[in-house]
Amino acid sequence: KVLVLALYDYQEKSPREVTMKKGDILTLLNSTNKDWWKVEVNGRQGFVPAAYVKVL
C-alpha cells in the first residue's frame, strides 16, 4: 500500500472529494489522473489535488 503526506490543508468542495489537514498520512488508491488522486483518509475515500500531497 502506498502512503502520501498532505502538504497543505484541503477542504472538500464536492461529495467526491475528501478533507485533509497538513501532515495527515493518507492511503493512495489511484494516481492515474495527474491532477486529482484518489485517497483514503479517516475511513473515507475521495479525491484530493495531486499537487497537495507527496508520496512517502
Rank of each mutant, 00 (worst) to 15 (best):
W36R: 03
T32V: 10
Q11L: 11
N42S: 12
G43D: 09
Y8P: 00
L29E: 04
G46H: 02
L5E: 11
M20T: 03
T19K: 05
A6C: 08
D35S: 13
K34N: 12
W36C: 05
G46R: 02
P15C: 08
K22M: 10
D24P: 00
Y8W: 15
V53F: 06
L7E: 04
T19R: 07
L7C: 06
W36M: 07
V41P: 01
N30H: 09
V53C: 09
D35T: 14
K13V: 10
V18Q: 03
Y10I: 01
L26P: 02
V48F: 01
K1Q: 14
L5C: 06
G46Q: 02
V4R: 01
V4E: 00
A50V: 06
L29K: 05
D35R: 11
M20S: 01
N33H: 15
L26I: 11
Y10G: 00
D9N: 11
T32Q: 14
A50C: 06
Q11C: 07
D24G: 04
D9Q: 04
P49C: 03
G46N: 01
P49L: 04
V18W: 05
V39S: 00
K21M: 11
V53E: 00
L29N: 03
N33G: 14
N42C: 09
T32F: 11
Y10R: 03
L29P: 00
L56G: 03
L28E: 00
Y8I: 12
T27H: 09
L29H: 06
K54R: 15
A6P: 01
D24M: 12
R16K: 12
K21N: 10
S31G: 12
W37G: 00
T27E: 15
T19N: 07
N33S: 09
A6G: 03
S14A: 11
M20A: 02
S14G: 12
T27D: 07
S31M: 11
V4D: 00
Y52V: 05
V41Y: 14
A51S: 08
E40Q: 10
V53A: 03
G23N: 07
L29A: 03
L28R: 02
K34V: 12
V39Q: 00
V55W: 06
E12F: 06
G23I: 01
K1E: 13
G43K: 08
V18T: 09
K13P: 05
V39G: 00
L56F: 10
T19C: 05
V4P: 00
P49V: 02
I25C: 05
Y52L: 11
K1W: 08
N30T: 09
L5Y: 15
F47Y: 12
S14N: 13
D9L: 02
F47I: 08
G23V: 00
G46A: 03
G23P: 00
Y52A: 07
G23Y: 06
T27K: 07
L5W: 07
W36G: 01
P15V: 12
R44G: 04
Q45D: 07
T32M: 12
Q11W: 15
I25L: 09
A6N: 01
D24T: 09
L28W: 02
K21T: 11
V53N: 01
V2A: 10
V48K: 00
L7Q: 05
V48C: 04
D35Y: 14
G46L: 04
K34Q: 10
E40N: 06
D24W: 13
R44V: 12
L26N: 01
G46E: 02
P15F: 09
P49S: 02
